[in-house]
């Protein structure tokens, strides 16, 4: 499986993501600069955290119009796995690949610590190696992770089982304790917590690794189907 990590000016988790794929997952991975226009040849796309374009205007608002984004949108339409973490999640929201928007954390503080998440849906390609209802420890690091959507969208997300991760002790005021949601088709996941920062015990938790392993498992299974 060949993975692209998109790097924007101001990304600061691109190296963590690269490390998680190369050393944690032991798969091929490249950085792709935001000025590129093609993602041909990549099986999975990672949009890492950070402060793209200094978070000017709104988090993700300017990155959403960078040169690489039409290729990201096309990859989403082609069914490729796309993971947006933290600022990457904000970019996916701004791009309309996921519904809703982010508000300033309820307590106004930038929160940087491990939090407990509950796995709500383990039938997605990103979460198949977790148990449903399992508690996992993954770090958050954000000032604007207070997920907001209108009541109608929230009902839809719940009815369609598209809330993949919830906070066990909501740190930021997020609607319905939402930490991560998936698109209708099930190939675009956005989450505020950083699984790439939790891929080995030395980092305080290895619970994030299974998310990447789930993506690889899905790729192997779909690849096997195609070639057999």
């Amino acid at each position: 499986m060949k993975t692209a990590v998109i790097a924007f000016p101001g990304s600061n988790c691109d190296s963590d993501m690269y490390y998680a794929i190369r050393d944690g997952l032991e798969q091929e991975v490249d950085y792709v600069w935001h000025q590129e226009t093609s993602l041909d040849g990549y099986d999975a796309i990672m949009i890492p955290g950070g402060f793209s374009y200094g978070d000017y205007l709104r988090s993700g608002a300017i990155a959403r119009f960078s040169n690489i984004m039409p290729a990201v949108i096309a990859a989403a339409a082609a069914g490729k796995p796309i993971l947006g973490v933290c600022n990457g999640f904000q970019i996916l929201l701004e791009a309309g690949l996921l519904p809703g928007a982010m508000l300033r954390n309820k307590g106004l503080k930038f929160i940087c610590r491990h939090v407990d998440l509950e796995v709500m849906n383990n039938t997605t390609l990103f979460s198949s190696l977790y148990d449903k209802g399992e508690t996992i420890s993954i770090p958050v690091a954000h000032g604007e992770g207070n997920y907001y959507c209108d009541a109608e969208t929230l009902t839809k997300l719940e009815a369609e089982n598209r809330i993949v991760f919830k906070y066990k002790n909501n740190p930021n005021g997020s609607a319905a304790d939402i930490a991560g949601i998936i698109n209708e088709r099930g190939n675009v996941l956005g989450m505020m917590p950083h699984p790439e920062r939790a891929t080995e015990a030395l980092l305080g938790s290895a619970h994030g690794l299974r998310l990447f392993q789930s993506i690889l498992k899905h790729w192997r299974e779909s690849h096997a189907t195609l070639t057999s």
Partner: peptide, 8 residues
């Protein structure tokens, strides 16, 4: 398109 996020 850019200045306002009409979701919020």
């Amino acid at each position: 398109k850019l200045l306002a996020n009409t979701v919020i």
